[in-house]
Simulated scan of single mutants.
Amino acid sequence: MAADRSLAAGLPKARQRRFNYPLASWSNGLFVLPFVIVYVLLLVVPLVYGWWLSLQNVDLLGGTTEFIGIKNYVDLAFDPIFRGAVRNTFYFVFMTVPMFVALGLALALVLNRPGRFSAALRAIFFGSSVLSVTIVTLVWKLVLMPGHGLLADVSHALRIPEYVPLVHEATALPMIAIVTVWWIVGLPMMLFLAALQQIPQELYEAAALDNASRWRTFASITLPSIRRTLALVAVIEAVFQFQLFGQAQLLTDGGPNNASRPLVQFIYESGFRQWLFGYSAAAAQVLFLLMLIGIAVQAWIVRRKDSV
């Protein structure tokens, strides 16, 4: 060790830095090592194990596994319940993500002003997003309860026929989408608020001097300035909504007639109710690929808009 120090002391400063660089890089890597270990154990290993499990026929009771190749994936392709779950999941994502972007931006534009009233409204809208899915579904069950819920009371007061959306195939999933937007819209709103507050006020002052209309100011200044936040909100919400589970299970349990069963609920029921763990793992890998494709398409659209 003393010989290394004496050797480094006799070198020019530039060569001393090069001499000590490998040691410094290894010491810096030690700070990253705990994250790398956790990342590998909690993400990489389960992902690889999931792919391996999807190629097996797992018998938990007998404690045996049998390699069956892509048979689970072939069975999924011919499973009408699985195809319906995929269709429901995409339908739900296409309903909710544009609503999150549009409604979150609209709320941010309205509440992006000083004052206690605006601050109170921001707290109210954001407060719902910190509630658990159990509380949210319980509240909406009380609203939508047939005969005794708030919606039923309003229908009786107006003397119109009572309509329960959760028991009809055409409206069950859209109603879950409305509940989800009511629940989580506060998070996109806060992200848009943060982006709007970063726009220099001088741009709006210059637009006012040029007598630009509100729509022209919004289209020429606001939207270009927050386009990255728009992409961020769209990607985050797409990832979250592909994982729809709690609302559908607690409100409708996938019914009526599988009209609101999402892909995550199909995975859960296959693995923990039917004990088909290989089949469930194969469905989970399909969901993972669908999410990757969706994110890649959105990223491509964003890059294409930025290059135009």
Rank of each mutant, 00 (worst) to 15 (best):
I267E: 06
W26A: 12
L61S: 12
S6Q: 10
I236F: 04
R17F: 03
L107G: 09
L53E: 08
P12N: 05
A212Q: 09
G104W: 01
Q197M: 09
A152M: 11
Y91W: 05
R113I: 12
D59N: 15
L121N: 06
V143N: 00
R273C: 02
Y204Q: 00
T65Q: 07
P114C: 13
A281L: 04
T222R: 05
Y163G: 03
R228K: 10
E66Q: 08
N72F: 12
F117Y: 07
L250D: 08
I301N: 03
V110E: 06
R159A: 14
Q285F: 13
S155E: 04
A208Q: 05
F218W: 10
A170E: 08
L7G: 05
N28C: 10
Q285L: 12
L11E: 04
M291I: 14
N211Y: 07
P256G: 09
A170F: 07
L158S: 06
F266I: 09
A282K: 11
A195Q: 01
V181P: 00
W300L: 15
Q56A: 08
P22R: 11
M145L: 10
A281S: 14
V179S: 06
D306E: 15
I135F: 05
P34T: 10
V93Q: 00
D4M: 03
K141M: 13
A102Y: 09
I221Y: 03
L251Y: 04
M291A: 08
P174C: 11
I81G: 03
V48W: 13
L60R: 11
L53M: 14
F117N: 01
E269A: 12
V179E: 02
V40S: 14
V93N: 01
M1T: 15
V264S: 07
S129H: 11
A299H: 02
A238H: 02
I221H: 05
Y39W: 11
T134F: 08
F117T: 15
S260W: 06
F100Y: 08
L276V: 04
L251D: 09
N257W: 00
I295Y: 03
Q243K: 10
Q243A: 04
G104P: 01
M145P: 00
V38F: 14
V264C: 01
A120Q: 11
F277Y: 15
T137P: 08
R18G: 13
L191V: 12
L150R: 01
I236E: 01
A2W: 05
F117I: 15
N257R: 03
A282R: 05
Q285V: 14
F272S: 00
F100I: 02
P12A: 12
V133D: 07
A3K: 03
T229R: 01
T222D: 08
L290S: 10
Q201V: 04
A2P: 00
L33R: 00
I236M: 09
G127N: 01
I267R: 00
A102N: 04
Q201E: 12
R17G: 11
H156C: 02
V32D: 03
Q274L: 05
R5M: 04
F272C: 00
N211H: 09
A219R: 15
Y73T: 06
W182T: 10
A24N: 07
P146H: 10
A123Q: 11
N257E: 02
A119R: 15
A24L: 12
A102P: 00
T134L: 13
F92R: 01
L209K: 04
W215E: 02
M175A: 14
